[in-house]
Design a binder for these strands. Structure first.
Length: 560
RNA sequence: UGGGGUAUCGUCAAGCGGUAAGACAACGGAUUUUGAUUCCGUCAUUCGUAGGUUCGAAUCCUGCUACCCCAGCCA
């Protein structure tokens, strides 16, 4: 009986399907191999979803995906990063079961293979200095020259490598190099370094080793050791592929993994490089790695994005080899689409203006029924207190409104969501002419939002009873950078020139009491504003909400 | 001037010699107690460009152009 092969969704799956059909492979095994030297961002999420997604899709073919810490550089890596990486992958919804690996666990094997290479005459200990190395390497257009140590006896290299490993030499003194071709047009093949001396304790295995393998050497071997079939990485490794293959072929390892490269994710109005992200964090432009403005997984999580919305996004952007910049609107669409269906509604006034209803019975408080989610009648109702003094949004009143402004204005009637119709009768101003309060009358017949005469009211606005309002701090986020394309900057500019100084706006809001009772995981829609959820620092007596994403705003757009 | 890649709608992206999917964005219009949602409709005679092969080309061939990556003892 033959298993049915899934239909491919991108060029990588095309390759996998071909391999399965041709019999080149009988199973599918991928891996996510981060270096624990920074926090994961949404670009990594693309890779995580791709690798785990393939494993899941090809489950009938033993589809599996490992997590492997690519920890070959003790100078940059740390346990803190490992922990955050694992937490992020798990949060995204993926399970690597017991397949949590570390390149550092393979060091002995790497070492043994290195000795094999030396014995084969395919690697040698080189004593050129770093500067000499650069000089001997040649340039993009000129061939390199052979190192004077290239043809030293195998026994000598063996001895020297053993002594390097024993710690006899200082850093930079010697290097183990692969013997390939100094005149290769591919610079990666010009006798690349495969081991260097680093007298720094490794965060996991301490000072067991003083020689550390290079990525180009460790990666193919790690893949091979784990039985990886398809080793997916980003485009910049494309010209490392001949080297990846060279190690596996030279060592005559059977059933070799295949490296496949795809384009990394870029998003409009933000940056994805670890270096830049680190700079933003260290310069305190942002509040740590989980700042909600950052495209880090932890930032997106703190902002309120759901794992499902990020997976959906990863699915929609596709996988290809062309450099691209994905419109941030697509990410926004994904989270809106999910939350529109699931988020309970509530009312919050972000920029409050006092409204007094002059014909409302003194001191009367009425509980009105409001739908929790009008798009989901099953969700039921919540009670909201209504009274003669309310807060409304400052932008929902205009003394001299333009045409087609449906909200409150002198003499204009508006519907208060789930409450009553009110008509503006007076505008109260301070000495400087600022509107400080407005007076309205309400129509007792309009309770709940409709009247017996069925008259039409174009404007519907949200409100909060002043006496019952709860104060809340609300964080409103904008793009981190002002420039859409941050991957290609104009001459003589640098990323920081485009930092958006107004990427965070804090508002002192008045919110309905219901919001005091929601739990820390609940994402709510502040009607007519967007989707919000409690910040990690929020508490029931000091509410703090983060705006995950705003609602689409065709009126605001039209005004521009 | 070497090597490796990529070019299909504003942005992603299908297409694999048989006559340009889809999504986001945008723009109309309907519905609406969120100017949200939903719903209907519009949005590439053309696939970087110039030739060639073919009955037929985004798909094959040739030339050209643009952009990205590579000269760490980083990954």
């Amino acid at each position: 009986m033959s298993l049915s092969i899934p239909s491919p969704a991108n060029f990588i799956e095309d390759i996998i399907v071909e391999d399965l059909k041709s019999g080149k492979r009988t199973n599918v095994h991928t891996r996510f191999p981060p270096e624990p030297n920074g926090y994961l961002h949404i670009g990594h999420a693309k890779s995580i979803c791709l690798n785990f997604g393939i494993a899941h899709k090809f489950a009938d073919f033993n589809g599996l995906c490992n997590v492997r810490m690519d920890d070959t550089n003790p100078a940059k890596e740390d346990i803190e990063y490992e922990d955050s990486i694992k937490a992020d992958v798990r949060w995204l919804g993926f399970d690597w079961e017991d397949r949590e690996y570390y390149a550092s666990d393979y060091y002995q094997k790497f070492y043994d293979y290195a000795i094999d290479l030396i014995k084969m005459g395919k690697a040698y200990v080189c004593e050129l200095t770093a500067e000499q190395m650069t000089e001997y390497r040649g340039t993009l257009t000129e061939a390199g020259r052979n190192s004077p140590w290239r043809d030293r006896p195998i026994e000598e290299s063996l001895d020297l490598f053993a002594r390097m490993t024993a710690g006899e030499f200082p850093e930079g003194k010697m290097l183990l190099r692969a013997k390939i071709d100094m005149s290769s047009p591919n610079i990666n093949m010009r006798d690349p370094a495969i081991y260097r001396i680093r007298k720094i304790p490794h965060h996991r295995i301490g000072d067991k080793w003083v020689v550390y393998p290079m990525y180009d050497y460790a990666h193919p071997l790690s893949d091979w050791i784990e039985g990886i079939t398809h080793s997916i990485c980003t485009l910049e490794f494309e010209d490392h592929r001949p080297l990846y293959n060279w190690f596996l072929e030279t060592l005559e390892l059977p059933n070799r993994p295949q490296q496949i490269e795809f384009a990394r994710l870029n998003l409009s109005y933000t940056v994805m490089s670890k270096r830049l992200l680190l700079q933003l964090v260290e310069a305190k432009f942002v509040d740590g790695w989980d700042d909600p403005r950052l495209p880090t997984i932890s930032g997106l999580r703190r902002r309120g994005y759901t794992p499902a919305s990020i997976r959906e996004f990863a699915d929609r952007i596709g996988v290809a080899k062309a450099d691209s910049i994905v419109d941030i609107n697509l990410l926004w669409f994904c989270i809106r689409d999910e939350l529109n269906a699931t988020a309970p509604r509530a009312m919050a006034v972000l920029d409050p203006l006092k409204v007094k209803i002059t014909n409302w019975p003194e001191g009367k408080v009425e509980m009105v029924q409001a739908q929790i989610n009008p798009n989901d009648p099953e969700a039921g109702f919540r009670e909201v207190p209504f009274s003669g003094e309310l807060w409304i949004e400052r932008s929902d009143f205009m003394e001299d409104p333009p045409k087609k402004y449906f909200r409150l204005a002198p003499g204009q009637e508006v519907r208060l969501i789930s409450g009553y119709y009110v008509t503006c009768t007076d505008v109260i101003k301070d000495d400087e002419g600022n509107v400080v309060e407005i007076h309205c009358t309400y129509d007792p017949e309009s309770k709940g939002g409709t009247t017996p005469d069925g008259r039409r009211v174009r404007g519907t606005i949200h409100w909060v009873s002043a006496a019952h309002a709860v104060d809340a701090k609300v964080n409103l986020y904008e793009h981190l950078f002002t420039r859409e394309n941050m991957t290609n900057l104009p001459p003589d500019t640098k990323p920081m020139d485009f930092i958006n100084e107004n990427s965070l706006e804090v508002s002192s809001a008045k919110v309905e009491p219901y919001l005091q009772s929601i739990d820390a995981e609940t994402r709510v829609q502040f009607m007519r504003h967007g989707y919000f959820w409690p910040d990690k620092e929020s508490s029931s007596d000091a509410l703090v909400f983060n705006r995950i994403v705003g609602l689409k705003d065709s009126w605001g757009k039209k005004k521009k």
